Simulated assay, not measured.
Amino acid sequence: MSDTGSVPSRRGLLFGGAAIAAGTLAAGCTSNEEKEPAAAAQTAGGGDNDKPGKHVTIGFSAPAADHGWLAAITKNAQAQAKRYSDVTFKPVEPTNDINQQISAVESLISAKVDALVLQPNDGGQLNQVARKAMDAGIPVVNLDRVFPDKLSYRTWIGGDNYGMGVAAGHYVGRRLKEKGIAKPVIVEVQGIATLPLTQERSKGFADALKSYGFSVTARQDAKFTVETGNQVAANLLQAHKRIDALWNQDDDQGVGVLAAIKQAGRKEFFMVGAAGSANAMREIKSGGVLEATVTYSPTMAGSAVRVARLIAQGKGLSDLVELQVPQSLTLASETVTKQNVDRYLPLGFES
Rank of each mutant, 00 (worst) to 15 (best):
G256F: 05
A259E: 02
A274F: 04
E227H: 12
G213T: 14
L237I: 15
G159V: 12
A304S: 15
G273T: 05
M300N: 14
V92A: 02
Q231L: 12
N96G: 05
K285M: 01
G68H: 07
A218D: 07
L25R: 00
Q238A: 15
G288N: 10
L323F: 12
V172T: 15
G273F: 04
N96E: 00
Q263Y: 04
T335Y: 05
N96W: 11
I243Y: 02
R174M: 09
R306H: 14
M164H: 09
T43W: 11
K315D: 13
L143W: 00
Y84F: 15
T198H: 11
S333K: 10
N49I: 14
G5C: 12
V105E: 05
A222Q: 04
T95R: 11
Q220Y: 11
I261Q: 06
G45R: 10
L70Y: 03
V321Y: 10
A77G: 01
I192H: 05
Y212L: 01
F269H: 03
V255P: 05
A222I: 10
L143Q: 10
S277L: 11
P94D: 02
K210A: 15
G59L: 03
P326V: 12
T74V: 02
N279D: 04
P326E: 08
A245V: 10
A79W: 07
R145G: 09
I109R: 12
G46Y: 11
A259L: 06
A130H: 08
T299V: 15
A239N: 04
L290C: 07
F224I: 02
L209V: 12
V129S: 03
G314C: 09
L116E: 07
D342N: 01
R175N: 11
E188H: 13
P52W: 12
L151Y: 06
L320G: 02
E334Y: 06
T293K: 03
Q119A: 13
N230R: 09
V226P: 00
Q101D: 03
Q327R: 14
P326N: 06
G23S: 09
L320W: 06
H170C: 04
N76D: 08
V146W: 06
Q313Y: 09
A308K: 02
K241Q: 10
L310P: 06
Y153G: 03
A206F: 00
E33P: 04
L143A: 02
M164E: 12
L323P: 07
R282E: 06
S2Y: 07
D114P: 06
E227F: 13
L108Y: 09
V289N: 02
G302C: 14
S211V: 10
N49K: 08
G191R: 01
Q324L: 13
R154E: 08
E106R: 09
N340L: 01
A26C: 14
D122M: 03
S328L: 14
D250I: 05
D250L: 05
A21C: 00
